[in-house]
Design a protein around this nucleic acid. Structure first.
Lengths: 192, 192
DNA sequence: CCCACTATTGACAGTTTGCCAATAGCCGAT
DNA sequence: ATCGGCTATTGGCAAACTGTCAATAGTGGG
């Protein structure tokens, strides 16, 4: 046995290290195909530590997913005074930018593995889609009432599917994706 | 031990029986949360028989999924001579009908559990979406070349997300779903 | 410099999957 | 009707995996 002297880190640092290693493994193989032993080896720690920090294998996985299914949509280009169609197009263009550079996880995580209605992963994806819908409403300067959010949420699924065609299969161009997704947004908010 | 005398069925009948039982269990709980022992008990057979028929747990699961992620889209209403927008609306209405009555699985299975690009479930869903796109092209009387299929495939994801809002969350009406999905189809095939 | 705190480890028990030899229904042949 | 062979079906074994917990060893504070 190789007895690497045990190194002691702050809980936060260790957590990040484990999440980072797990993120890489889960991006390559399925959840049930990756053992805790592998995850521990990749992170360079003992298997028991994973349970110590995350409780169970599922919770570790969900922690990884939570960080991956959402696009980083912090700052918003300044859109004051422009008409809504232009706002929609610019915001969607902004989103596509994010999808291209950071959003590998966002693009692919488009739903649950099975059709179980109360699925933990589906809940994460739904929350992310809802967040994207609110983001868009905010960018358009529209109120969050009036039932627009349910009409806008499915557009997130649409956009992700379009991005898969564009970024992975390379069957669509960026311009096509932008056009189709923007049109869906405008139709959803009832603006021609 | 209860020794129910062992009953011998034809391979096809047994396969169907197992698939039926598995389908029910998988609709309630996650893949990794259902053990082969439970599946065997639900089907009323020994655990070894599942391996005999399906090889592995994963293959049994995929067999269930294969049947569930596709809508039964056999017959198509007769649309000869009508303009394309009307064809699109009628076809989409037909699809929504199927989603409401049979398509619990189709609506929910909208993607992979994780963002692994070569995921077996994702492949099934992709094939189903592609099939739906061909179905729609056929209904519209449009040729399958010209790169329309990649533009139309994401509409399947969009429609499923809309159906989830309509059938599960009850935040949209059937008419709204019909309007938004039909508009997406028409935009995808470049017909106003 | 030593002690207490806690991050980290290794081992154990229960469960699960995959595999294979043994068993027993069923159909055709005699 | 009965027997024999084919194969559907079973039960048990070995390896792998997850969850739990007591023991261990860095590390900062007194």
């Amino acid at each position: 046995m190789d007895h690497t002297p045990r190194t002691r880190l702050s809980p936060d640092a260790r957590r990040q290290q484990i999440l980072h290693a797990a993120s890489k493994l889960y991006s390559e193989r399925r959840y049930d195909d990756v053992s805790l032993e592998e995850l521990a080896a990749a992170a360079g720690v003992a298997r028991g530590l994973l349970h110590h920090y995350f409780g169970s294998k599922r919770e570790l996985f969900l922690a990884v997913m939570t960080a991956s299914v959402r696009l980083p949509l912090e700052q918003l280009p300044d859109l004051d005074g422009r008409p809504i169609p232009e706002r929609a197009k610019l915001t969607m263009s902004w989103i596509l930018e994010g999808a291209q550079s950071y959003g590998q996880g966002w693009v692919n995580a488009s739903g649950a593995e099975q059709w179980n209605p109360d699925n933990d992963v589906q809940a994460l994806v739904d929350a992310a889609d809802d967040r994207a819908a609110r983001f868009m409403l905010d960018a358009l300067g529209l109120p969050d009432d009036a039932g627009l959010r349910p009409r806008l949420r499915p557009v997130a699924a649409f956009t992700k599917a379009l991005c898969r065609e564009w970024l992975q299969r390379k069957t669509l161009t960026r311009d096509e994706v932008l056009e189709l997704s923007t049109a869906a947004v405008l139709r959803a908010v009832r603006v021609s």
